[in-house]
Design a protein around this nucleic acid. Structure first.
Length: 241
DNA sequence: GCGACAG
DNA sequence: ATCTTGTCGC
């Protein structure tokens, strides 16, 4: 059998095969940002699911890394073929996100996913799988933990505490705003933990969640509410200036 | 065997 | 994630 890009997808696999694929793909991760990394555009990715889980509306919103203003967005609607299984989220969401990604005219230099990076049972969360598949530096920023334990962290914005799992530091709990629960940050692909934390704080100047995530969430939710399936999603792929 | 369990 | 009513706080 040939080694190909097809291997990176894993669409159509069973949950059992998905686990094996994660264990194999994990070896390809690069947990270090490229020395040449210059982020001028940073994107958020998210999906919104329909009633009975039939259709998934996914999308990216690309922000200017300095102003944090949206510069482009792209969405797609794809039938969801994989169930939600803790630890296998990427197999459910990435097919939708890939379709949206292909509609982006200008790819971002960094993508922040709504979910885990290496803070995962097999160190291969959606940010890892997505970064590898799209060939882009990526960060996982989740609202809750999938695995690991976190000690107490300070109350001030910018405070952090390690996420430890099986004796390893797999991520960081980050307080992006005083008085709210932290977000959980871990590297995806072409990324390391310090750089990931730095970027999450940079794109979260005011609210608990990164501006990237907030924009992406609103965008895909609007797509779903508007209905219309993929036709409608494709048409709303340009941002108004 | 018993919990825990991203979105 | 989605489905939903009310409530608390700036």
């Amino acid at each position: 059998m040939g080694e190909s890009a097809e291997t990176l997808h894993g669409w159509g696999v069973t949950p059992q095969e998905a686990v094996a694929l994660q264990n194999a793909l994990r070896e390809r991760l690069v947990l270090q940002p490229p020395a040449s990394l210059r982020v001028s555009r940073v994107a958020g990715a998210d999906i919104s699911t329909e009633n009975g889980n039939a259709l998934g509306y996914g999308g990216f919103v690309v922000l200017d890394a300095v102003s944090l203003r949206p510069v482009e967005q792209a969405g797609a609607a794809v039938a969801l073929s994989f169930p939600y299984v803790p630890g296998l989220l990427s197999f459910r969401e990435l097919p939708v996100l890939l379709a949206a990604w292909n509609r982006l005219a200008h790819k971002p230099d960094l993508v922040i996913f709504d979910g885990q990076g290496i803070a995962h049972p097999r160190r291969f969360g959606i940010a890892c799988h997505g970064g590898l598949l799209l060939g882009v530096p990526s960060i996982g920023c989740a609202k809750s933990l999938l695995v690991g334990k976190v000690g107490p962290l300070g109350e001030a914005r910018g405070e952090t505490a390690e996420i430890r799992h099986r004796g390893e530091v797999v991520g960081m709990a980050v307080r992006t705003r005083r008085g709210v629960s932290p977000v959980y940050v871990s590297p995806g692909h072409l990324m390391d933990l310090p750089t990931a934390v730095e970027w999450v704080l940079r794109v979260s100047p005011r609210y608990r969640e990164p501006e990237t995530t907030r924009h992406a969430h609103r965008f895909v939710n609007a797509l779903r509410t508007a209905g219309g399936g993929d036709r409608e999603a494709q048409e709303k792929t340009e941002t108004s200036p």
